Amino acid sequence: MQFTDRLLLENRAWAAGIRAADPEIFSRLHQGQAPGALWIGCCDSRVPAEQICNASPGELFIHRNIANLVDENDANVMSVLEYALKALEVEHIIVCGHRGCGGIQAAISGDEALAALPRVESHVGQLRQLVAVHADELNRFTQLGDKVDHVVELNVTAQVERLAELSLVRESWAARRAPTLHGWVYDLASGQLDDVVSRGPADADAIPEANGWRRAAS
């Protein structure tokens, strides 16, 4: 059986199981969505947002890209953010990184393999700026894996701070005192999520130094 054929069969089994537990669920979902959170996560196949949170269909509005980055020049992530805030009025935005992230490792090690992946190389360029700013701090790590995991935490913090600076978020804070921003890290080895940082409307006038690397490098 081909892999894609198996996926289609599994879909039928999944849908039947969901209907057995809640016969009206698909009828309700067909009427519209009201997710509680926008999830900005990494594309890594080992980090399925709904599954690791045990979330039901309709609870998470999801955007994924390599290394879970927020880039004002990326029309994809910005259109998702705009829709989540203005149309869906989500109460939370979660930026979720994961330990052992390949995008982070490439940014640290300057992986030569990225030479054949110019779009990926361009995408993770901002991570190299983050690594450069924290170079002295990172030098205390002797193992690459430990360094990668530390940058994963620095990165989710930087992306949360970047969100906090965006006019879309600040306008929403002023209008409805939401959303709350969260930076989480998923541990592939344990399957558990760690809460690293959060920001809310009360932080609107306090731009932390953690995101200074972006402004300085711009």
Results as ranks from 00 to 15, higher is better:
M1Q: 04
M1A: 10
Q2R: 03
Q2N: 08
D5C: 06
L8Y: 09
L8P: 01
L9M: 13
E10M: 06
E10L: 10
R12H: 07
W14G: 09
I18L: 14
A21Q: 13
E24H: 02
E24L: 02
I25V: 13
S27V: 13
S27P: 01
R28L: 09
L29V: 06
Q31W: 09
Q31L: 14
A34Y: 11
P35E: 01
A37H: 08
A37N: 06
G41Q: 06
C42A: 06
D44C: 03
S45Q: 06
P48T: 10
E50M: 04
A55V: 13
A55L: 09
A55R: 10
S56I: 00
G58F: 08
L60N: 05
L60R: 08
L60I: 13
F61T: 03
H63V: 02
H63Q: 04
N65M: 07
I66R: 09
A67V: 15
A67Q: 11
A67I: 15
L69D: 13
V70F: 00
E72I: 11
E72H: 11
D74Y: 12
V77D: 02
V80E: 05
E82V: 04
K86F: 03
A87H: 08
L88P: 06
V95C: 00
G97Q: 01
H98C: 05
H98T: 05
R99L: 07
G100M: 09
G100L: 08
C101G: 08
G102I: 12
G103V: 01
G103I: 04
I104P: 00
Q105H: 09
A106W: 10
I108P: 12
G110D: 07
L117T: 10
P118K: 01
R119D: 15
V120M: 14
E121G: 12
S122T: 10
S122K: 12
V124E: 09
Q126K: 15
Q126C: 15
R128S: 05
R128W: 11
V131H: 14
V133E: 15
H134D: 05
A135R: 05
E137I: 04
E137D: 13
F141V: 10
L144S: 14
D149I: 03
V152N: 01
E153M: 14
V156Q: 01
T157G: 02
A158C: 06
A158K: 02
Q159R: 03
Q159T: 01
Q159W: 00
Q159M: 07
E161Y: 09
E161K: 10
R162I: 06
R162G: 09
R162N: 12
L163S: 08
L163H: 04
L163K: 07
A164L: 09
E165A: 12
L166R: 10
L166H: 07
L166A: 07
L168D: 08
L168G: 11
L168N: 08
V169H: 03
E171H: 04
W173Y: 07
A175K: 02
A175P: 00
A175F: 00
A175N: 01
T180R: 12
L181N: 03
G183R: 11
G183Q: 12
G183E: 12
V185Q: 02
V185F: 07
Y186G: 04
Y186E: 01
Y186H: 05
D187M: 02
A189N: 14
G191F: 01
Q192S: 13
Q192W: 08
D195E: 11
S198A: 10
R199Q: 09
R199G: 11
G200V: 02
P201R: 02
P201G: 07
D203H: 10
D205T: 02
A206I: 13
A210H: 08
N211C: 08
W213C: 10
A216C: 05
A216S: 15
